[in-house]
Deep mutational scan, measured.
Amino acid sequence: ELVLALYDYQEKSPREVTMKKGDILTLLNSTNKDWWKVEVNDRQGFVPASYVKKLD
Rank of each mutant, 00 (worst) to 15 (best):
E1W: 14
E1A: 13
E1Q: 15
E1R: 14
E1T: 14
L2N: 06
L2I: 10
L2R: 12
L2E: 06
L2D: 03
L2V: 08
L2M: 12
V3P: 00
V3H: 04
V3F: 08
V3K: 00
L4C: 08
L4D: 00
L4K: 08
L4A: 07
L4R: 09
L4H: 04
A5S: 05
A5T: 03
A5M: 03
A5C: 12
L6G: 02
L6P: 01
L6V: 08
L6S: 03
L6M: 09
Y7Q: 11
Y7D: 08
D8I: 02
D8C: 04
D8A: 07
D8H: 06
D8R: 03
D8Q: 04
D8F: 04
D8T: 05
Y9R: 02
Y9D: 00
Y9C: 02
Y9K: 00
Q10P: 06
Q10T: 14
Q10C: 10
Q10A: 13
Q10F: 14
Q10W: 13
Q10S: 12
E11W: 05
E11T: 08
E11D: 05
E11R: 12
K12H: 09
K12N: 10
S13M: 08
S13A: 10
S13C: 10
S13E: 08
S13P: 04
P14T: 10
P14S: 12
P14A: 13
P14Y: 11
P14K: 10
P14D: 14
R15S: 14
R15C: 14
R15V: 10
R15A: 12
R15F: 13
R15D: 12
R15N: 15
E16C: 06
E16R: 04
E16D: 05
E16Y: 05
E16K: 04
V17H: 04
V17A: 05
V17G: 02
V17I: 15
V17C: 09
V17R: 01
T18S: 15
T18R: 06
M19I: 15
M19P: 00
M19L: 09
M19W: 01
M19G: 00
K20I: 08
K20F: 12
K20H: 11
K20M: 10
K20G: 04
K21N: 05
K21F: 05
K21Y: 06
K21T: 07
K21E: 08
G22A: 03
G22P: 01
G22W: 06
D23W: 12
D23L: 06
D23K: 03
D23P: 01
I24L: 09
I24S: 03
I24W: 05
L25W: 03
L25T: 01
L25S: 02
T26C: 10
T26A: 14
T26H: 12
T26L: 15
T26S: 11
T26Y: 13
L27G: 01
L27V: 07
L27C: 08
L27R: 01
L27D: 01
L27W: 01
L28A: 03
L28N: 03
L28Q: 03
N29G: 07
N29E: 15
N29C: 10
N29F: 06
N29V: 09
N29I: 08
N29Y: 07
S30C: 11
S30D: 15
S30G: 14
S30H: 09
T31R: 09
T31A: 13
T31V: 10
T31S: 15
T31L: 10
T31C: 12
T31P: 04
T31Y: 10
N32L: 09
N32I: 06
N32R: 10
K33S: 12
K33Q: 12
K33L: 10
D34M: 13
D34R: 12
D34E: 13
D34C: 13
D34K: 13
D34P: 02
W35T: 03
W35Y: 07
W35M: 05
W35A: 02
W35R: 03
W36N: 01
W36I: 05
W36P: 01
W36S: 03
K37W: 15
V38T: 01
V38S: 00
V38R: 00
V38E: 01
V38K: 01
V38Y: 00
E39V: 12
E39A: 13
E39L: 11
E39R: 12
E39F: 08
V40T: 15
V40H: 15
V40I: 15
V40G: 14
V40R: 15
V40P: 00
N41R: 13
N41C: 12
N41S: 11
N41Y: 13
D42Y: 10
D42P: 06
D42R: 11
D42N: 15
D42V: 07
R43T: 08
R43M: 06
R43D: 04
R43C: 06
R43W: 05
R43Y: 05
R43Q: 08
R43P: 00
Q44I: 14
Q44L: 07
Q44G: 08
Q44E: 11
G45F: 08
G45Y: 04
G45M: 06
G45D: 02
G45A: 04
F46Y: 15
F46C: 11
F46Q: 03
F46V: 07
V47Y: 01
V47E: 01
V47W: 00
V47A: 04
V47G: 01
P48F: 03
P48W: 02
P48L: 03
P48D: 02
P48V: 02
A49C: 07
A49F: 03
A49D: 02
A49L: 02
A49S: 14
A49P: 05
A49H: 04
A49N: 03
S50R: 14
S50L: 09
Y51F: 13
Y51G: 06
Y51M: 12
Y51I: 07
Y51K: 07
V52L: 15
V52N: 01
V52E: 01
V52C: 12
V52R: 01
K53H: 10
K53Y: 09
K53R: 11
K53C: 13
K54Y: 10
K54W: 08
K54T: 08
L55G: 04
L55E: 05
L55P: 05
D56I: 11
D56M: 10
D56R: 09
D56F: 11
